[in-house]
Design a binder for these strands. Structure first.
Lengths: 203, 203
DNA sequence: AAAAATTAATGAACACTGTTTAGTAAAAAT
DNA sequence: ATTTTTACTAAACAGTGTTCATTAATTTTT
């Protein structure tokens, strides 16, 4: 009964074709700029076909979010090899910001875009994101354990650092830094990262 | 020739009626959840009428953003009365976050929502926001002048603090704190604010 | 191998969106 | 009283997400 297996493979392949097309279009024109019809056209199928593979646009969105989460993990997790927790933490932060700057659409998808979040929590992408977040918190915990900070409130430290990094990236990619000349923005972000690292050192 | 004046008054009144209806609907259902037809229905006019007062939906958006900017200014500017720059800065930060938490839609409109930002810069709302931002930077400068910080890089200090506050608010209102139980979120935000203040003290 | 059943894909339809425009009725100016 | 200006409307256009009856192809059963 190899037919059912082949069918399943084909179904999976189709799903992936839709996702690939959606992801590409999405990168080019942003999430709202892409319609189901656009995606259908890209893969040379009718709009209705999309709905045989995804319940609605938001499910397609979640699938894309999963891809984004995987991309982010691949961007961040190499730092797991860094022995010293403080160095690991700093490099994690640097890479987090770097990910946001290099893949603004992906970052947007993960951390800014409005989505029915109550539905997402038992979704693969959320699990993936949660794992990366846990790794971050554990790194902070390792720093606390090694007395890199005076404070021992791991949760608040982690959250505070995250707030800064997220604020930095999201102000940048949602164009709320227009009071600074364009060529200075990245440098300012860089300086701010250095500053928060210094601030954290004396925590 | 009192007629032209009356006409002008009426035109202004109509504009305001549209804005009021839009703002109310927007608060209830969010920006994307409100259509031009919805607004038209609310004021009992045809959709086309809206376009006699606003070039397009984005101009209506900018007008709303202006209202939001004014609300924010009213929420923040009372701190101008605080003599000591450090106390003023801390209170400014507290109120900034408080504004975001209390008026998430307004905050969203000002700092998160995607909009054609290149067009906005010579708009009233941008000027208003810029003024508030300048006040913030000046307060930081006053702190620098009075040697509240070791660092003298006013621009980076201000930007770093802004990043933290914006990150805090936007993670909250875009529901990216779901890894923390709901009843703990506000307390965590509170603790993080206290922490960044402590961190800033030793800058 | 032929007929029946299952599956995949379609394309038209529905109710919505932002926006434009020809036409109309009322008000103002002549 | 007639012309001009103004304010507004209704219909239309091209787009959106989504559903569904129908069709075409494939697989299963006879």
């Amino acid at each position: 009964m190899g037919i059912t297996q082949r069918k399943e493979r084909e179904k999976e392949a189709m799903r992936q074709r839709i996702l690939d097309a959606a992801l590409q279009l999405f990168r080019e024109r942003g999430y709202d700029g892409v319609s189901i019809r656009n995606i259908a056209e890209a893969i040379e199928y009718s709009p209705g076909t999309i709905y045989l593979y995804f319940k609605d646009k938001s499910e397609l969105f979640f699938a894309l979010q999963f891809e984004a989460a995987a991309l982010k993990r691949d961007h961040l997790m190499p730092v797991a090899g860094i022995e010293d927790p403080w160095e690991r933490l700093v490099e994690f932060g640097r890479r987090y910001i770097d990910f946001g700057m290099k893949h603004p659409d992906m970052y947007d998808l993960l951390f800014i875009t409005r989505a029915p979040m109550e539905y997402i929590e038992n979704q693969e992408c959320w699990q993936l994101g949660l794992a990366t977040h846990s790794f971050f918190v554990e790194t902070v915990q390792a720093c606390v354990d090694k007395r890199y900070f005076r404070s021992t409130d791991t949760e608040t430290i982690a959250y505070t650092l995250w707030c800064h990094a997220h604020g930095l990236v999201s102000l940048f990619i949602r164009e709320r830094m227009r009071m600074y000349p364009e060529e200075k923005r990245e440098a300012l972000a860089q300086k701010s990262f250095t500053m928060i690292v210094k601030m954290a050192e004396s925590l």
